[in-house]
Design a protein around this nucleic acid. Structure first.
Lengths: 204, 204
DNA sequence: AAATATAATAAACAGTGTTTAGTAAAAAAG
DNA sequence: CTTTTTTACTAAACACTGTTTATTATATTT
């Protein structure tokens, strides 16, 4: 029964077609403006067809969410070659910030939006996200082992580093830093100083 | 022409009626589930009437947004009595975190959601928000003047402190810290340790 | 009392996510 | 090879959303 396998393959192809279209539209117009109907129009199928391949809109964006984490995780692991764990931590932090600034819509889906989280709760698998987080955690643990940073619980430090980075970029992408009434290039310089200040403060 | 004044008073009353209803519904069900129609139903007017008093849904939530900042600002200024500026900074940070945890929907509107910002851009007045931010900025400046914390540009430090606090609470309220797979009470302890670690690290 | 201005609304518009019922085409069974 | 069954798809509808328009009833002014 090779037919069953072909059908399964065709099913995956269709899922990929939907995801690819959704991703492209999402990165162009954002989540809210990417409706099931616009995706359907783009792939030249009826809106109802999409529901034969995905439970709901959130499931589609959960897949995109996972893909985005895989991209970030890959960028993190490019720093494997850096021997000194604190230098690696610095590189990872800067990569995190750069990723957010370069891909604000992905960042939204990954760390700000409530939407695709409904999927996670049920399945309890945050795969790519956990992977990226563990990379940071391991790097922090290595820093602590090598006495490169002030002694503190590694989870506390992980929360601290992540919170700092996330706070910085999410205030920026959601335009809250505009209270400071600063030209954008000056703001970006300030943000970089802020990252450096935070990281240097961790040193023993 | 006392009629004109009465009319203006009635207009304000109606605006308040709408805002009060919207606020109550918003704090109970969140932004998305608070529709113009549910507000209209609650105040026993037709949906179209609301548009005679507010340009759009965002304008309503911009008023709530301002009120929320006024509440936060008031809570900040309760710490005026604290003489030592660094102690004051610590108190302000803890108040910020507590405010977010106690009022996640307000916090959403103030610091996370994109919705009510459309209003701000046009009018360029962030009144209550600027006020609260300046309180933090002044406290930080006082810390620096008194040589209580490591020397650094006050704006850089303000961004750092705010980013850290915002990152921490927004990752929590948007359930991203769940990757750590920790019981909630443990998470809250970790978060408090994280705040303490961050603030103590600022000391000279 | 008549003319005008104001306040409120019913109904519609254009959009959303999602479901249901019905139709062709493909696969399996006789 | 024909008949039955399963699969893939879609048109249309449902229940919402924010917002606008045309109309009516009320209040104010002339």
């Amino acid at each position: 029964m090779a037919i069953k396998e072909r059908k399964e393959r065709e099913r995956q192809d269709m899922r990929n077609l939907i995801i690819d279209s959704a991703t492209q539209l999402f990165l162009k117009q954002g989540y809210d403006k990417t409706s099931i109907r616009t995706i359907a129009e783009d792939i030249e199928y009826s809106p109802a067809t999409i529901y034969l391949y995905f439970k709901d809109k959130d499931e589609i964006f959960y897949v995109i969410h996972e893909n985005a984490f895989a991209i970030l995780d890959k960028q993190f692991r490019k720093h494997d070659a850096i021997e000194n764990p604190f230098d690696r931590l610095i590189a990872v932090c800067k990569t995190y910030v750069k990723f957010a600034m370069d891909n604000p819509d992905y960042y939204d889906l990954m760390f700000i939006m409530r939407a695709p989280l409904s999927q996670i709760k049920s399945e309890e698998k945050w795969d790519a996200g956990e992977c990226a987080f563990e990379y940071v955690l391991d790097t922090i643990a290595a820093c602590l082992d090598a006495n490169l940073i002030k002694p503190v619980d590694k989870y506390v430090l992980a929360i601290s580093v992540w919170s700092f980075g996330h706070g910085l970029v999410s205030l920026y992408v959601r335009e809250r830093l505009s209270v400071m009434e600063m030209p954008d290039d000056m703001m970006l310089t300030m943000m970089e100083s802020s990252v450096n200040f935070f990281l240097e403060n961790l040193r023993v």
